[in-house]
Design a protein around this nucleic acid. Sequence first.
RNA 1: CUGGUACUCUUACGUC
Length: 352
Amino acid sequence: FTFNIMVKALCAVDRVDDAQTLVQKMGTKGCAPNVFTYTILAKGLSERSRPYQALELLAEMSLNGCNPNIVTYNTVIDGLCKEGNVEKAQQLVQQQIPDDGCSPNVITYNSLINGFCKVGKIEKALRILKDMEEDKLLPGPDTISFNTILDAYCKHGKLKKAYKIMEHMKTIGHAYNVVSYNIILAGLAKLGRISEARRVFEEMFRDNIAPDIVSYNTLVDGMCREGMVSDAKMMLKAMTGNGIKPDIITYSTILDAYCKRGKIVKARELLGEMLRKGISPNTASYNILIQSATKEGRILEAEKLLQKMRERGLTPNTITCNIIIQSLCKNGELDKAIQTMESMWVKGSNAI
RNA sequence: CUGGUACUCUUACGUC
């Protein structure tokens, strides 16, 4: 359907309001929007933190004789959960969905679990998981359900609990995957427990779950934070040997570590290596370099970098902006800082 | 089996 494609396109270029208007007009043109149309729009709204408008959309579509299906509901529910209103989402699951003759599926519950985790109510999330395991009327949990809980524990530094979940999965014979391991790795890395992370990493090979780019990047990041930059650099070679290509994140992570420690020569070398490998720096990479330059008083270099960034068609983001303003303020150039801010403001950029 | 792929999951840069 042509209209659906248009709605999607409008959402993609951030013109959700236009998309909404279009959908409203469709009805009057004898070309009624269908479930697909509404779901696309609901997703557009949800992704832009407008879950309540998505919620209203549910009512609107029913009025137009188009009943939401489970995909529509899940889209709205996930939006609500990400906004932090898990209660409202749960209400939908318990009341409206059954009223509509739909039944929640594993994705629905996973959204709720994630929602509760993100607002710090892990107990509630666990409750849902347990219900899914025990209640035959509910869909059984999948790997994602478990991973979500795993992640919540790891993010809170509760590694023992995380390990317990992992053990639980093993004992009931539930599949885990590379993401499960990545979550654990990230948890350990954040706590600076690098040697333990290394052991887990080795275990992955024995477990026939090959580390992916995220696994490597997580470990590299952990090493860099602990000042083990040369170990991190060695990982670069190791991963290549294992068929995983270092990406922009791998390089930026190490680049940042070098810069923060004033190892400018090494940083430049790495930048060169990165370019030779055909990986072009993005805004984040430039932010790293610009910050390093400003902190060490190499203002001219910073300006040049900004210039280069522009030439490459990269747009400065909030962080770029903050780095520059901070540096100007420290040099007592308040006027210039304000000027910069205003010009960014005028450009209508998402910076600030 | 053509159109909405919905949740999960993970990784880099600023301010405090």
